[in-house]
Simulated scan of single mutants.
Amino acid sequence: MFGVDIGGSGIKGAPVDLDRGDLAEERHKVLTPHPATPEAVVEGLVEVVQHFDWSGRPVGVTFPGVVTDGTTRTAANVDKSWIGTDLAAVLRGRLGCPVTVLNDADAAGVAEMTFGAGQGRQGTVVLLTLGTGIGSAVFTGGTLVPNTELGHLELHGHEAEKRASTKAKEDQDLSWEHWAGRVQKYLAHLEMLFSPELFVIGGGVSRKAHKFLPLIEDIRAEIVPARLQNNAGIVGAAMAASSAAGDAG
């Protein structure tokens, strides 16, 4: 199966080995265009898929926003013209193969629950992808509650992702300590709302978890980095494509 992860900074994809839950080949990445209009992003996505000469076989695609039935419903970190775009249909036309589209954090969460840090956990698990924004995936009893978008919660008068995303850290030149304090306040807010047993921290910054997770205190839930790191979205997208192909069959 093939997975593509559309992010605020990059569009990356690769064939995926679903037996191992890992990339079958080194991923290919192109920069996300700005403005990130549907037309421009689709061109980048097609380039990623064609890099591997992948044709005729199912493709899974993640999107950084709410997705229902292959249609994108929100556009917080991409161009507003995405709202109401039937991305699955557009890509089926361009790629000539079955396409499944889902929220990016949901894809990462499904991968982590199956192959990664959430494997075997039956209580409430919250995965957060810290990047251009903050994506979220919530599971209870191993079942996903889709399109939660908890990065848009208000926290101390601000949208959470404007304070605690990796982009906020970079744009405001925050130290690891200062940024970890913001992440801690965000996690405390989520803990109050959901009482999870586990937080899984994903996104590109998960590679540097040792620099900030030890600085987070006073959270009852266990906090761990995503085991699949920034490949989780690609793996989850391929899993969704495989599931859709099975349902269709």
Rank of each mutant, 00 (worst) to 15 (best):
Q184T: 05
N230S: 06
H51C: 02
L91T: 03
D104I: 04
L127C: 06
T71N: 09
A226M: 04
V61I: 09
T148G: 00
M113F: 05
K208T: 07
V59K: 04
P38E: 00
V145H: 11
L45T: 02
T129G: 01
V183K: 11
G135S: 09
T71L: 12
D247Q: 15
A168V: 13
V99A: 01
W179M: 06
V61H: 06
L198Q: 06
N147A: 00
A180H: 10
S195D: 14
V16Q: 03
D22P: 06
R207T: 12
H189T: 15
L45Y: 04
E191V: 01
G181Q: 12
I6V: 12
M239Y: 12
G3P: 04
V67M: 13
A232K: 02
D5C: 06
K167A: 13
P33Y: 10
D17R: 10
I83Y: 13
R182G: 05
H210A: 07
E217T: 15
I134K: 01
F63P: 14
T85E: 10
A14R: 10
G96M: 06
I11F: 05
V48I: 07
A248H: 14
L95N: 04
N103T: 06
V46C: 01
L213Q: 11
H51Q: 02
G118E: 06
E191Y: 09
Y186T: 07
T37A: 09
G13L: 08
K185Y: 14
W176E: 02
Q119A: 02
E39A: 13
S243L: 14
E177K: 15
G118I: 11
K29N: 01
D69L: 02
A107H: 10
L213H: 11
E217K: 15
V205R: 09
V59Y: 06
V224S: 07
K167R: 15
L174M: 11
A237V: 02
S195W: 07
R207Q: 13
P64N: 15
A164T: 13
E191N: 08
E26L: 07
V200F: 00
T72D: 05
W179T: 03
P196S: 05
G96K: 03
G44Q: 05
R57D: 15
T32W: 10
A75Q: 08
E161P: 05
A111R: 08
E197L: 04
E154Q: 14
L155R: 09
G7V: 03
A240G: 01
A232E: 07
K29W: 03
T74K: 09
N147V: 02
C97E: 15
F63G: 10
F139M: 04
T124D: 01
F199H: 11
H210S: 11
H178A: 09
E177N: 11
P15N: 13
T32N: 09
W82E: 13
T100R: 05
M239T: 13
D218V: 09
P33S: 10
Y186D: 03
